[in-house]
Amino acid sequence: MVKISDLKVGQALKSEFDSLTRDLLKQYAKASGDTNPIHVNDAVAEAAGLKGVIAHGLFSFGFITKLFEDFLEHGKYGKIIEFEVEMRGMVRVGDKLVTEATIEKIAGKRVFFNVKQTSFTNVDIKDKNSTIVKQFEAGERGYISEKDIARGLIKTKEVEEGTLTYRERVATPGTAIIELYD
């Protein structure tokens, strides 16, 4: 049950999605009518200087709306009033999308959120000798740019097979407003 009296400024909602495949982008292209080939055809995307297909700008938006639909139990406890999103970073096949929404303000029955969707792009895993033991699509196709490195977006962490290098960046920042019934 979601009630306005139970919510507090600073409270956060979160979801993760890590099954972004080429087939899913094809499914989205067909369903959305956005059939630009840079989203489904690597050769066309490469010719456009993109090094491989990119997700549709609004594809990842669907996971933001889903986060709130789930939170409101599909209209049982309230309704979605408004979303405003900015497409800032390209999302790629294999990326993990983490969507977070934090309550900024509560006014009457309306709740105002700051939304941040972050993409995590795995590059490779190296062993103790810095030998690549696993390379991901971003490593093979060269998705990581000098700009990413200069901006400090490239990070590492220890995983079972060695040291994972990945890029973490905010792909879609935004805001949301919902209205609760109670």
């Binding site: 989205y28 369903a31 609004l58 938006f61 709306t65 889903k66 639909e69 599909h74 979303f83």
Partner: peptide, 28 residues
């Protein structure tokens, strides 16, 4: 709706049950 792993019948149920578009469908 299925592109986003939505499983609630409100958005992916049968037409007879009164299915409606998920919010993201506004993109389409």
């Amino acid at each position: 709706a299925k592109c986003f792993d939505i499983t609630d019948p409100k958005y992916v149920g049968s037409e007879e049950e009164g299915v409606i578009a998920c919010h993201a469908y506004a993109n389409a």
